[in-house]
Amino acid sequence: MTDEELHELAGKQVALGEMRGAPAPDPVNVPMIRHWLTAMGDTNPAYLDQGLAPPAMAQVWTMQGAGQNRSPVDDLLAALNGSGYTGVVATNCEQTYHRYARVGELLTPATRLTGLAGPKRTALGVGFFATWNVTWYGDGDEPVAEMMFRVLKFRPREPEPERRPPYPLQPAVNQDTAFFWEGAKQEELRIQCCADCGELRHPPGPMCSRCRSANRSHTVASGAGTLYSYVVHHHPPVPGRATPFVVGVVELPEGVRIVGNVVDCPIGEVEIGMRLKVTYRAMDDRLVLPVWAPEES
């Protein structure tokens, strides 16, 4: 819903005026009062002595399970949620007590929406302030207590994406090589394939050196490989890397070789001829590297 539509809906709901809800499930009663006083640590003897409920309990009597007590507020809150204003925080609660409710009395709430203000910029995010009133009627249909309640429905700020430091060893990429790096992001090991003669080639380039075609395609490698050679880098330190680490030349069954790290394998167990399978490592928010793990792991 647009902001204007939200205001329109609010206007309609305000126009509905006060809507009665279901009466409290139980009359005002001593056990609940005693329970409440105990929990609050309130030692005021007046209530139980006089058979009166603490006034701040007004709302307690009519607390309902969700959805049982439709009020003009519900549709508006649902619309705000649906429009992205999913955050909620109460800002004001103002209660006025005409008299204390009496033990045995059955309270009935009535709700009316009184206003929607916004959107406004707040510390929590952009949001709307929704205000409604609840009146509790007692025996004889006279108001016992009233409450003005205001909430801020806000659009939660995008949680700060977990910022990984940019990986310092970025590849240079151009139109001849972009397909490979795009593939890595999708966890595909793409090998350039001549669209005319089918020759596979890695590293890729703009021309097929076999048939001179510039029509390029790619195939997705099976992800299997055999270690053809490798180094264990110890020194000097390399930016973005913890030493020691292993880099290998991997021979693919498709017939090309590719360089990549050998991971998830104790360095002492790395050996030429070992069978590997491709896996992928996100180095930062934009670079994914295909790397190689032992086939059995």
Partner: peptide
Amino acid sequence: MGLVERYVTDWAGPRAVIRSID
């Protein structure tokens, strides 16, 4: 709301009658 009420009546005593809490 309940704790605010209690805080005031603890001080004002059992004869006080709360009219509003904002």
